[in-house]
Every structure is written in C-alpha cells, then in structure tokens.
Write a protein that binds this DNA or RNA. Structure first.
Lengths: 232, 232
DNA sequence: CGAGCAATTGAACCCGCTCAAACAACGTGG
DNA sequence: CCACGTTGTTTGAGCGGGTTCAATTGCTCG
C-alpha cells in the first residue's frame, strides 16, 4: 500500500494516518528503468519528488561540461523540491542509476499540504538544513583536504557509515564508477582509480561492476581523518 | 523603530504589522564591537539571529585548524538558525568584522512564531534553499575551476554583482584580508595575494584596509567564466 | 566470442603550495 | 609627531600532488 511506504518518508514524518492517505491519494507514481532522465538541469521545476525504490544520481554540469555529482538519492528521500522555493529551475540533472520507483506531487499540491499540515514545513526545513550542513562539510573538505581523504569521506558517506556508529563494514550496492567517485570529490577518474586500487590491494575495500564494499571501515575512517601530518 | 527594521528582514517578509510588532517586542538586541565572537563552532545552538547592521564572518575550522569561510552575513540576513533544526550545535564560528547590531530570539520563541505565522516557515525554506543552492554552486567551482576563477566568483558574490545585472562596478565595504579571500575559495593567502595584485596592476580592482572595489566588473566576470581553454 | 565500456598504469608536466624573507600600513603610546 | 610593534601584503625559489595524455588490460553482456 502506498500510504504505508509514504509514512516512512522523512518529509511526511509525524503525519496522521488520515493525512498520509490524502497525500498518497494525490501522488503520481512512476516506474523508471535504469538510465532514465527524471529532469534536466535548467528546466522548469514543477514537482516535488520522492524516491520509493532504486537510486537516482543528481549531477550538475558547468558550461565546460565538467560534472559534479551533488548526491545519490536513496529510498525514502526527497529530491528536486528545493527548486520550487528558489528560482523554480532545477539546478542539476536527475537520472536513475538502477531501476527505480518515484512518486511526485505538483507544486500546487505541495503548497496545499504545507498549508494544511504545518509539520511538513518543519520537516522540510530540517531536511534542507541537513543538506546545507552536508554541503558545507564537503566545501570544507574540498578546500582543505587532499584527494585521498576526500575519496575516503565520499565512500563513508555513500555507505552511510560516516557517523560515529562503529560499523565494521559498509556497502554501496549500486553501480559506482571511478568517474562517479572522481566527480563527487573534485578529482580525475585516473586519480580515483589509483587510490581505489591501492586500497583494494591493501584489502580495505572491494569493488566490482555492481557496487563497492568497504571491508575495513576503521581503516578508511583513519584515512579520512588523517591530519595533514604524514604518518609512520 | 525596531519593527520597521525587522520588516525588511527576509525571514519576516510578508508579515502583518501587528505580527512584526509582536516579533519585535520579543527580540533581544545587542550592539557588538568589531571582533566579538557571537557563537563558537560546536557549542549548543539556542537562538535565531538576525543582523541589523554591520558584518559578521561565519567560519568553520577543521581538526587541523584550517579554516573555511562559509559566508559573510550582511544587514538584514539571518544566521545561526539552521542549527536549531538539525543537530542543535553551531557548525561554525560567528565573529563581527565591523561594529554590528544583532537581534535574536530564543528557539522556543521562534517555534511559537513559526506556528502562529506559517509564512515564516515558507520564508525559512526559501532562505535555506537559496543557501543550499549557493553552497552547491561553490562546490562545483571548487571541484572544477582553478584558483583565479574561484577568486573572481568570490569577489562577484561578495559585491552582489554575480547576477546577470549589468552592474559596472561593485564594492565590498568591510575589511577583507587576502587570507579571508583565500579561505573562501580553498587557496592560500599567497596565491590570493598574487592574483589580486595582478588584477590591481591591470586596473580591474582596487583594495585597501577598508575594503575592495571591483572597477571592471565585466573583466572579472570574464575571468570567472573563462573556460579551461587558454585565451589569446 | 567479440564489441564496448570501465579500469589500470606509465610518463611528463604544471598549477598552486610551502617556506622564507622583506615590505607597507596602521594604531598606539611615549 | 615620530618610533615602534602589530598586522597584513608582496615576492621569490623550489617542490610535489594531482592532472593530462596515451596506451593497454580486463570485465560483461549481447
């Protein structure tokens, strides 16, 4: 049932069952094969999107064609919605990276919900605030750390074990190329390849065409946190 | 009158005069000399701040002590508020860079206002969304552009003429050191100095201890947009 | 099994960093 | 009002991390 799935979406956290039913009733659901472009950078933003299954890559490209991967959207996450509140144009492309299921609502509907259920507004601020925080964290990394550390951070974030949770292994279970990794941390695919290969040789990570596994999370954490000082 | 000044604050845009009066009545106002630390990175976030006059530098430092300037807060801008909705700890330091006047409200009061005047919630989403957008823009720059271009972008942003507005000159009228510039765009103060000096020699900008003036905005824009391709 | 995409590896180069030192602009107090 | 300390700026020389370009190898899937 759709409402049950929507209940797990952070954007709609704390809503009463009746409200969830209403939200669900107004949704448009789409199944999308891998490689589908959901929206393109620069086009008019018209809908609020939530991913129910699969994985979507959000990537921004500048005038020279160089790309930056803003983030990967996972199950239950909202995307493409901030544009509705700013300049009404998507700042990036969204493309499915595996077969996916998406739900969306028109802007008018979202505003109606926001008005009727103020909790959604708070959720929205919390979500966008958390993203702003993460973006600023990345800015700090990009400005001060070296490539190796940035890649380590990127992997930890993707595997959801960047928190202090003492996870001993993390998995990224969707295709992630060296180029993807490079475009997430401002490096070239060559450098990313060299770093990853070195880690594989050391037994810290394993990767194939289906995803990446972090075997030695503590080791990767150590690299991520490694101060500029060289180590023994 | 305080309410009149608060009426110009984006966070409270669209509020009725009575509401503005109430908001003003609950505010705490502080005059702060230059160099005052308003809050420190890592400490508990308790208030929503708005700057009425002056200038505040928001800077984040990592474990190695390297700093990233997140932004400069100007008149009428909100700051230190997102933390209330995320992990309740300031992610950066805030320090006045000129003599300033700040108003603030407790978190409880802000939530009360949010509940009573839903417009504030929408404003908040719009403001935070715009900042997220800017942060992502900077991420793209940091990841793909070279120092010269990043400095150009930083100056244009600070002088509020990064938009397509055909401004012919821009001014930053607060002390801005080469180190500040460097810390905004992930460079060293030495590189920033060399670039700025070169621009001064070319007559594109002028700077002293009181601020920076962009004399040839189009020229700086050209540098900012310069594709990787070398020019004649 | 072969076509095509992704990954690996090598060699050379260069942008921006690091370190070091001199220099200019202030504000302050004698 | 000048001497001085402080703070910010400029400039040089040398190095190195990461890029660029080019070529090869290795998966996968049709």
């Amino acid at each position: 049932m759709l409402a049950a799935q929507i209940a797990e979406v952070e954007l709609f956290a704390g809503l009463a069952p009746a409200a969830l039913d209403e939200v669900a009733a107004r949704a448009r659901v789409q199944s999308l094969p891998r490689g589908t472009l959901l929206f393109a950078q620069g086009t008019a933003a018209e809908r609020c999107h939530v991913l129910l299954a699969g994985c979507v890559r959000i990537a921004q490209s500048d005038e020279d064609g160089r790309q930056l991967i803003v983030r990967f959207v996972g199950r239950g996450e909202m995307f493409g919605t901030v544009a509705l509140f700013t300049d009404r144009h998507y700042p990036a492309d969204a493309m499915t990276v595996t077969d996916s299921v998406e739900v969306s609502w028109t802007e008018a509907r979202l505003l109606e919900f926001l008005h009727r259920y103020p909790q959604i507004g708070l959720n929205l601020v919390r979500i966008v605030g958390a993203r702003l925080r993460e973006a600023q964290e990345r800015l700090g990394e990009l400005a001060t750390q070296r490539v190796e550390q940035r890649i380590a951070h990127a992997l930890l974030r993707l595997a959801n074990c960047s928190g202090s949770a003492a996870a001993t292994a993390g998995t990224i279970d969707y295709p992630l190329t060296r180029e993807d990794i490079a475009q997430m941390c401002g490096a070239t695919l060559y450098t990313a390849s060299r770093v990853l290969k070195a880690w594989e040789r050391a037994g810290y990570v394993a990767s194939n065409r289906k995803g990446v596994r972090i075997i030695e999370v503590p080791e990767i954490r150590r690299i991520a946190a490694a101060s500029a000082a060289r180590e023994a």
